[in-house]
Amino acid sequence: MLVLLSGVYPLVIAGIGKLTPGHGDGVILTYKGRQVGFENVGQKFTKVQYFWSRPSAVDYNAAASGGSNKGPTNPDYLNKDVKGRIDTFLKYNPSVKKADIPAELVTASGSGLDPDLSPAGAKIQAARVAKVRGLSEQQVLALVDAHTEQPFLGLFGPPKVNVLKLNVALDELKK
């Protein structure tokens, strides 16, 4: 039984995994010949010329992933963490109204490695990114739209934008 369940079964799955897009190692994206990260594993973006990813309780450490586990009424969490993130965001995005910031940009994900933003979470950063890079806001918004992944089969689940892919596309646009 042990041989079958722990030996044969995972090895067969690993064998089949070799046929998948990432060969079972995870799909890696490259930019200018350099490997820049896993498609599905979120990474930290804090520089102003990139779209920022969501806050992470583990600072996007993909070898020790996790969430904040802060409860919804925790006063420290609300008045320091979230409020601090709101203030930082407003500082770097002066054209944005506070009431328009979507909550995902000031809350940490469960894995700490969330690779995505909602379309709203990306678009609200377009003005900043456009200004820093000397692009028009329309151009950047169009790029976000082009990288928005629609719900599964167009019917199920939320739409999303992969931050790494979007930022790679931004860098490609510049050259």
């Binding site: 969430g67 904040s68 802060k70 979507p102 909550a103 940490a108 969330d114 995505d116 939320p158």
Partner: peptide, 10 residues
């Protein structure tokens, strides 16, 4: 998109 602390966008 609702309460997002501890949740994934996807």
């Amino acid at each position: 998109t609702g309460a997002m602390e501890g949740k994934e966008v996807r």
